[in-house]
């Protein structure tokens, strides 16, 4: 019999003391998808007199800087913000971090904390944080908009936490305090290393996401070829919200138990059709993808894409920005 899996530690608000951040200066390096919601959450939690943290933004992107100023933050160049920080949150895009790290790292003070929201640059050895600095991971499992919304309404959001280097012996208390102040620990956060985080993140994005996307596209186009109404197809697939409710139900009641709550016809149809899916082929493809992520081949390709000025971006923009039947159907529905 297999031994039961050993689960990582789960942290909640009760494990954190935000007093560990009293009087600290926190620099948000990058004010984009994650930077804005985390900065707003931290200001809500830590900006009052009781804790008295100062929160500044480091940015060299004009649009992001403008947005941060409009939100009421002091904005400095990245390295200058790092120099003022007791805790610096590295929130630049993964592939951009390696070229920015030397200038930022050179200004970080010994005893300060450098926090990454993704394990990518650390796990692939693309950055070298300076000696004497704590290096920690706080990786939310949620998009920026949801991070903010779920914090405002008190639900919190899942994140991964890890300490990669504890120079100060204070890395864990500070990290837990920060995760709590950022709104995550109301939901809970799991302990994870940077390497585990990046493998999980990239693997599910690349092995599962494309199958889901391809299944939606194929179901839509095959149904349309057969004369089914496009709007009805999109409703069944995601537009009604039934599918997202199903995912929420999986999270709440369990993946398999949720199957039976849609009635026997759905369970019977799903089971019989699942048996005919070539899981071997699917598994082979997923194993290949994971191997390229583990080996660093994907990271090499992403860094090359960045160094070359994102040559694949126009194709991606064409695919997602085209005037296609799905987008037109969605627009029609929104105007109804």
């Amino acid at each position: 019999m297999n031994a039961p899996p050993r689960h990582p530690r789960l942290f909640r608000d009760r494990d954190a003391d935000i007093g560990a951040l009293r009087g600290k200066s926190i620099a948000i390096l990058g004010y984009g998808l994650l930077g804005q919601p985390l900065a707003l959450n931290l200001r809500d939690s830590l900006g009052g007199a009781a804790i008295g943290c100062s929160i500044i933004v480091g940015s060299e992107d004009d649009a992001s800087s403008e947005k941060a100023r409009a939100d009421g933050f002091e904005v400095l160049p990245l390295a200058d913000a790092a120099a003022r920080a007791d805790i610096a949150l590295m929130l630049l895009p993964d592939e951009v971090q390696p070229e920015r790290m030397p200038a930022i790292g050179a200004r970080l003070r010994p005893g300060s904390t450098l926090l990454f929201a993704s394990g990518y640059a650390l796990a692939y050895g693309l950055v070298t944080p300076p000696d004497g600095v704590d290096v920690v991971l706080f990786a939310p499992r949620m998009g920026g908009e949801a991070i903010r919304q779920r914090s405002v309404d008190g639900r919190g959001y899942m994140a991964y936490l890890g300490v990669e280097r504890d120079s100060s012996s204070e890395a864990w208390p500070r990290l837990l305090a920060l995760a709590s102040a950022a709104g995550s620990l109301k939901h809970g956060a799991l302990e994870m290393t940077a390497r585990q985080e990046v493998l999980l993140d990239l693997y599910v994005e690349q092995a599962f996401g494309p199958w889901l996307g391809a299944a939606i596209l194929s179901a839509f186009h095959v149904g349309m070829e057969a004369g089914l109404p496009p709007l009805g197809l999109l409703m069944e697939l995601y537009l009604s919200g039934e599918m997202s409710e199903t995912f929420a139900q999986m999270a709440r009641d369990g993946f398999l138990p949720s199957t039976l709550t849609h009635g026997y016809a759905a369970a019977f149809g799903g089971m019989t059709r699942s048996l005919s899916i070539d899981r071997e082929q699917m598994g082979d493809q997923m194993r290949g993808i994971l191997k390229e992520i583990e080996s660093g081949a994907f990271a090499d390709a992403l860094q090359d894409e960045h160094r070359s000025g994102y040559p694949c971006r126009p194709f991606l923009d064409t695919v997602v920005g085209d005037d296609d039947i799905i987008s037109r159907t969605e627009q029609d529905y929104r105007q109804m």
């Binding site: 596209l217 194709f315 064409t318 695919v319 085209d322 005037d323 296609d324 039947i325 799905i326």
Partner: peptide, 8 residues
Amino acid sequence: LGAAFLAG
């Protein structure tokens, strides 16, 4: 080609 790709 992007639209054609989306449409399978």
